[in-house]
């Protein structure tokens, strides 16, 4: 199975990179842009064939290493 993990900063956590991107977009003339937030995406393959088991493993990885729950949220997508 494949896991796609999307990690984003929690609401309320300042994202200066998102702010800089927003400023650059406005500089290019893109109007009406707000709340730009930058995150990251991690893809990995798992030997598991069971979706629930794969999800549980990815969840454990997020808790232990991939995300920092102090400042980040994560979402896991499992595909065959």
């Amino acid at each position: 199975m494949k896991a796609k993990i999307t990690i984003t900063l929690k609401n309320g956590v300042l994202d200066p990179q998102g702010k800089a991107i927003e400023g650059a977009l406005k500089g290019l003339g893109f109007d009406g842009v707000s709340d730009v937030r930058q995150g990251k995406e991690i893809e990995l393959k798992l030997d598991e064939t069971d979706e629930a088991a794969a999800r549980a493993k990815a969840e454990d990885m997020c808790q232990k290493l991939l995300a920092n729950p102090v400042m980040e949220n994560y979402a896991i997508e499992i595909t065959p």
């Binding site: 956590v13 300042l14 200066p16 990179q17 800089a20 920092n68 102090v70 400042m71």
Partner: peptide, 11 residues
């Protein structure tokens, strides 16, 4: 220790 160290606010 509690908390986390984020990217500097001024980048």
């Amino acid at each position: 220790l509690p908390g986390a160290l984020l990217r500097n606010a001024n980048l």
